[in-house]
Design a protein around this nucleic acid. Structure first.
Length: 855
RNA sequence: GCCGGAGUGGCGGAAUGGCAGACGCAGCCGGCUUAAACCCGGCAGCCCGCAAGGGCGUGGGGGUUCGAAUCCCUCCUCCGGCACCA
């Protein structure tokens, strides 16, 4: 009777919730993603910044992790031995604040959060190797953080010093220079404006590596990050110049300038209020006023000092300096616009050519002297006006240097001063040493004891870890909570054995994160911070991903750490992260940063319970360029879910459909499709052949482009290619190709290409097709270049740069033929109006542009 | 103020010297359905036009080029970084 109805067997409803958890369990049970140290294949260390265990994974964590997970999965399929670890940056203030606010102990609070976030991470289906997890608040980790501190101490890279430091009055803790943000100088964590305090603190000598940190030649990092670090380090070349002081017992005062060529314009000198020579210089009649000014400057917070910025206030010391070249007497002033910590804390005032000096000179009626001017230009007509720097300048009124270009005068004057023993070329930096001690509880105790006789002594390495006690009152008082813990405090001097006092400050959590990537290489080694063989095997990190907000924090500190450890012969490479990629930030729907207080936080759990993990992953990657981020807008998540539904359908199609009739040649296909016998109408055969070719072409193009897009972190366009391939499969199925080899090949390709982004559905469909477990262990598909190239190309034909016609030609058509066809086009002729073209431009494979003679 | 990034349909975006708007969302029309949802097919930058077709169009203005979203100059807006660094 009638042949069987040629319809697709009704595929089971697409519901990711029925298969996603099962696959995750199986992958975990099989340790599918464990990176094996002994695997002979080339290693690939892919790392994404570990989170602070705040309690809940939010959508930003998913966004950040999915990108590198896709790349990790693809690299693995491409035959690399991929390590993709995850851990928790679990020391830090929020745990302590939670303890204060609601009585939860930091240990328990942290442990619960880590456990919860671990589970949430697993629900994403990322290929993290959980066997390597590190938790920085665990004694098995911070023991080695402490050990590293001791190595820095012994190498002279950790030191204790009294210094004016930034203090957050709310968090009751000092901050590193890098943790103070904005014009109002606020705390990076709580936003409270910081104040200056003179305190004895621990520092790491980051400044020693300033120059090497400016060298990015060995790493592939985004330009903006390199620029931010370069600006932060702030190298300035110039000269230090001595000005003799006319005061008893005062050695010459040294200034730093980047423009020694303007020295003849120096009409006064300014010292920072904190400058050590201030007291000795000040004359008796000025003493009272100077004292009042400096005392006020010291009392003011940084912000108050900022608010008087435009006033450029200062005070005359009564003393004079001698200009080193003209031997003129110039007055010495004090002003708080000169910073104590930069350069020498003293500047020469050149009001004609420096706008700050100019503002100061204007206010206090100090003389303005022009010593450089634009080549061919002139000095301002208005007396005392400011003359900004220009490209090509020459010196005027500058002794023997008059007439010299500024560019030449800088070395010439520096050399002249050096010969006379009055100065030398000098370099200064904006970067400061890294302040690492914190007066809070929840961090790694600094392994130092203080002996009355022997001073600060390192805790012997065999006594590590210095354990953080649990029974501590951690209400912030401005001193470390550990100070109120007598048992912790009590220690004995490693040298004399007499009673000594333990250091009670803890380490900045950025110390923990400056080496966690090393610990991942041998996370369970109880005898050393890392196994050198494992580190040699895995380091450096091949590709690191994370937020750009760490540009001058974690990313700078980690580079410093690796360079310092290299010089201690503990590592043998120069950079921790060979390549770096930054993801953008997902903002709330209100275009603001997601935060609990704003109530705009998106919880991924709600989405996954509705759509499954794959849809959320695909949606996040489809939003736009990964490095751009953007405001949360879930409106197109349904579309992405539909896409996976179409994948579900086309991958399981086994028959049905009809060859599409060639227009104008209606087909009569008796008995349905596929036909049981060989008698296939010839037009139909032709359609099938065309369809097969088109489908194979679509598949091979997708293989090429998706691979390239993943590698370039262009996940949004990779998804669009996968959608195109899926749509092509849908069309092919409707044309009756579902049973063909080409169809099977295209489905396999689709699933393999989709596997990194949507690991569950691809595994499920792969399995349903009877392919071997696991799709994530399969080889990445390769494309046939001959199939990627089109057999017919469409060439746009422009007239005067405007599109007027198209030619459809074989790709190997000769240029003469193409140009002949283009000129023969009716549309082109209509514009030429019988005239000969002025020019015919033919860009092979791209277009033809015909230029008319014009009117 | 200095440094960096961005500005393209109603929306997210694609195209980095050669067909602007791929892919998707929302929208409209149609099919399936008793009906709706789901699903499937089609239309779709704006303006004029029944249409054929034409004009305009990538923040504004100018330039280079046969040809510019793309390169250069300039201005505007938004986002990020720095904060008196001599």
């Amino acid at each position: 009777m009638t042949a069987e109805t040629p319809t697709t067997p009704r595929a089971e409803r697409f519901d990711p919730r029925t298969y996603e958890p099962g696959w995750r369990e199986r992958w975990a049970a099989d340790d599918l993603y464990r990176a094996d140290d002994d695997d002979p294949r080339d290693k690939h260390y892919l790392l994404t910044m570990y989170p602070y265990p705040s309690g809940d994974l939010h959508i930003g964590h998913w966004y950040a992790a999915t990108g590198p997970d896709i790349v990790a999965r693809m690299r693995r399929m491409q035959g690399l031995n991929v390590m993709f670890p995850m851990g928790f940056d679990s020391f830090g203030l929020p745990a302590e604040n939670a303890a204060i606010d609601r009585g939860a102990h930091p240990w328990e609070w942290t442990e619960q959060n880590v456990e919860r976030m671990r589970t949430q991470f697993r629900s994403m289906g990322c290929m993290f190797d959980w066997t390597r997890e590190v938790v920085t608040s665990d004694p098995s980790y911070y023991r080695w953080t402490q050990w590293l501190f001791l190595q820095f101490f012994k190498a002279g890279l950790a030191y204790r010093a009294m210094a004016p430091v930034d203090w957050c009055p709310k968090d009751q803790v000092v901050l590193a220079r890098e943790q103070v943000e904005g014009a109002d100088r606020h705390c990076w964590r709580c936003g409270t404006p910081v104040v200056k305090r003179d305190l004895e603190q621990w520092f790491f000598r980051t400044t020693r590596y300033a120059d090497e940190l400016l060298d990015f030649s060995k790493i592939d990092w985004p330009e903006p990050i390199r620029l931010m670090q370069t600006n932060w380090i702030g190298r300035s070349e110039g000269a230090e110049i001595d000005f003799a002081a006319e005061a008893d017992g005062v050695t010459p005062i040294r200034v730093f300038t980047t423009r020694p060529d303007t020295i003849y314009g120096a009409t006064f000198m300014v010292l920072a209020p904190e400058h050590p020579a201030v007291a000795a210089l000040t004359t008796a009649e000025q003493a009272a006023e100077v004292q009042a000014y400096t005392a006020n400057a010291r009392r003011e917070t940084e912000i108050e000092r900022m608010s008087t910025e435009r006033d450029r206030s200062g005070i005359f010391t009564g003393a004079f300096a001698v200009h080193p070249l003209t031997e003129e007497r110039i007055p010495i002033w004090i002003a708080d616009y000169v910073l104590p910590g930069y350069g020498t804390g003293a500047v020469m005032g050149v009001p004609a050519h420096d706008d700050r000096d100019h503002a100061f000179a204007t206010r206090y009626e100090l003389p303005v002297r022009y010593v450089i001017m634009p080549r061919g230009g002139s000095i301002p007509e208005e007396d005392g006006a400011f003359l900004p720097h220009t490209q090509d300048e020459v010196l005027v009124d500058s002794g023997d240097f008059t007439g010299m270009s500024a560019a030449d005068a800088i070395p010439a004057i520096t050399e002249e001063l050096a010969e006379r023993g009055l100065g030398e070329a000098a370099v200064t930096y904006r970067i400061r040493d890294w302040l690492i001690s914190r007066q809070r509880y929840w961090g790694a105790p600094i392994p130092i004891v203080y002996c009355d006789e022997h001073g600060p002594q390192p805790v012997p390495e065999d006594q590590l870890p210095v354990l953080l006690p649990r029974d501590v009152d951690f209400a912030p008082t401005g001193v470390s909570p550990l100070q109120s813990h007598p048992e912790f405090l009590a220690a004995s001097c490693p040298i004399c054995g007499k009673p000594a006092r333990r250091e009670t400050d803890t380490l900045d959590t950025f110390v923990d994160s400056s080496w966690y990537f090393l610990r991942y290489c041998s996370p369970h080694d109880e005898t050393q911070a890392w196994d050198p063989v494992a580190v040699m095997r895995w380091m450096p990190v091949d590709l690191y991903t994370g937020g750009a907000e760490h540009a001058v924090l974690h990313l700078l500190y980690s580079r410093f750490f690796v360079k310092a450890l290299r010089d201690m012969h503990l590592l043998d490479f120069d950079e921790p992260f060979r390549a770096l990629r930054n993801q953008g930030q997902i903002l709330g729907a209100d275009h603001h940063r997601m935060s609990k207080s704003r109530g705009n936080v998106v919880n991924p759990d709600d989405l996954t319970s509705r759509f499954g993990s794959d849809t959320v992953r695909c949606f996040l990657m489809f939003i736009g360029p990964w490095d751009q981020g953007g405001p949360w807008n879930p409106s197109s998540i349904e579309g992405v879910h539909r896409f996976l539904g179409r994948v579900w359908a086309v991958a399981q199609a086994t028959g049905g459909g009809h060859p599409r009739p060639i227009p104008g040649m209606p087909l009569d296909t008796p008995g349905g499709w596929p036909p049981s016998s060989g008698e296939v109408p010839s037009q139909e055969m032709a359609t099938i052949e065309g369809g097969v070719r088109a489908l194979r072409q679509a598949a091979h193009r997708a293989i090429k482009e998706v691979g390239e897009d993943y590698g370039a972190f262009h996940f949004n366009t990779a998804l669009s290619r996968l959608m195109e391939l899926t749509n092509a499969l849908g069309a092919a199925r409707d044309d009756g190709l579902a049973g063909t080899e080409a169809y099977a090949e295209a489905v396999d390709a689709l699933l393999l290409l989709l596997a990194p982004t949507a690991p569950h559905i691809s595994e499920e469909l792969w399995s349903r097709r009877g392919r071997p477990y696991s799709i994530h262990q399969q080889t990445w598909p390769t494309f046939d270049p001959a199939l990627v190239a089109a057999e017919l190309i469409e060439l746009p034909v422009q007239v005067d740069g405007k599109l007027r016609d198209r030619l459809t030609v074989a790709p190997d058509t000769g240029p003469e033929e193409i140009e002949r066809l283009a000129l023969a086009s009716e549309r082109v002729q209509a514009y030429l109006k019988g005239r000969a073209p002025r020019k015919v431009l033919h860009v092979p494979g791209r277009l033809v542009n015909i230029v008319t003679p014009g009117e």
